[in-house]
């Protein structure tokens, strides 16, 4: 059952289209992420849900009620900003209680709700502090509590972790998911960080140039990307220009080496690209799998993973292997054989 619905939503700025024919149904309690590079329209879409931008065309409904042209202060939609946007003149408690105050709630109603929210974000002792006296992570928690205090229908998060350092980002990511699941609140999360989107979301909307590229669960997006853009944007991928040899059986050719593709639709001739993730490749030879020969081009040490780039028929192919102490790292220029299962690759 759809709770929040965006139907044929379009947004243009001075003739330039920022969002084009956006259609999405979000279920109550669902955590959905808009993922894409800068300028893809993800924040504009979020701002249209918040009411800060008006759609040029289309409709936004929440629980059957038309929100499209409703002012932002009438929507009961909580928003968390990248820049925190805490009110510097108010204490943490005043910030959290502000939405309730403007709603005309009494002090006796506001106080327990503020305390509850402070407990939710584990900042019980910080109520009397000012935002300037908190760290970035603490400020963003307060911003989250402030947005949740009003019991919003939908929670919107606009790249809330981008301004924080890596460690805090991971901590707060778990915190956001825990709170969202605890409260069962419908959430839209905007990010350009694929790891964030994959780890947090029930579903992900991948966007590019104002259009929806693909909507799906994190596993669907990562394992079964429908477009070249999604395949390249989410995770690492090898995209190899191959020549179709047998369209009925999905046999293709990279230079002189034959490859059997596991997933292929109707092949409309050439050029075709073969997609395979670096972690699907293994060193060596395996009977019944695809086996390719090349030469080691570069080796990148990434700590837990070692990424080896092999030149196969003049095309770079990356292979990720888990690091271990006994791992024998090849030398650049060495002949190298890689193998990958038939169902690990697909044609785009």
């Amino acid at each position: 059952m759809s709770y929040l619905e965006l139907s044929h939503v379009r947004k243009s700025f001075a003739g330039a289209t920022a969002v084009e024919d956006f259609n999405l149904s979000i279920a109550q309690g669902e955590f959905i992420s808009f993922l894409g590079p800068s300028g893809c329209g993800k924040t504009t879409t979020l701002r249209m849900v918040a009411g800060f931008e008006l759609p040029t065309a289309g409709q936004i409904t929440l629980n059957g009620k038309d929100l499209t042209f409703l002012p932002p202060n009438k929507r009961n939609v909580g928003m968390v900003f990248q820049s925190y946007a805490l009110f510097p003149n108010m204490t943490v408690a005043e910030n959290i209680g502000y939405g309730l105050k403007v709603a005309g709630k009494s002090k006796t109603e506001i106080k327990p709700r503020v305390d509850e929210m402070l407990g939710l974000i584990h900042l019980e002792k910080f109520g009397t502090r000012y935002p300037g006296q908190l760290s970035g992570g603490q400020q963003q928690r307060v911003a989250l509590a402030r947005a949740l205090a009003i019991r919003p229908h939908v929670l919107l998060l606009d790249e809330p972790l981008s301004a924080l350092d890596a460690k805090i980002r991971v901590e707060l990511r778990h915190e956001i998911r825990r709170i969202q699941q605890q409260l069962g609140i419908t959430t839209i999360y905007v990010t350009h960080d694929q790891e964030e989107a994959l780890s947090l979301s029930d579903r992900i909307v991948v966007m590019s140039q104002g259009k929806m590229e693909q909507v799906g669960t994190p596993a669907q997006i990562y394992n079964f990307p429908e477009t070249e853009f999604v395949a390249q944007f989410v995770g690492q991928i090898n995209l190899l220009p191959v020549e179709v040899v047998n369209p009925a059986q999905g046999v293709v050719k990279l230079g002189q080496q034959l490859i059997q593709a596991g997933q292929f639709g109707h092949l409309n001739g050439n050029p075709v690209r073969l997609a395979v993730r670096p972690e699907e490749l293994n060193p060596g030879f395996k009977e019944g799998a695809n086996n390719l020969n090349g030469k080691v081009d570069t080796i990148t040490y990434l700590g837990a993973i070692v990424r080896i780039r092999i030149a196969i028929e003049g095309h770079p192919v990356s292979l990720d292997i888990f690091n271990e102490r006994k791992l024998k790292i090849p030398t650049i220029g060495d002949p190298y054989q890689v193998t990958f299962p038939v169902d690990a690759c697909w044609l785009l």
Binding site: A50, N73, M79, Y98, R146, A147
Partner: peptide
């Protein structure tokens, strides 16, 4: 915008 989203006019 933060004020607006919290319901302030």
């Amino acid at each position: 915008e933060a004020g607006q989203s919290l319901g302030a006019n």
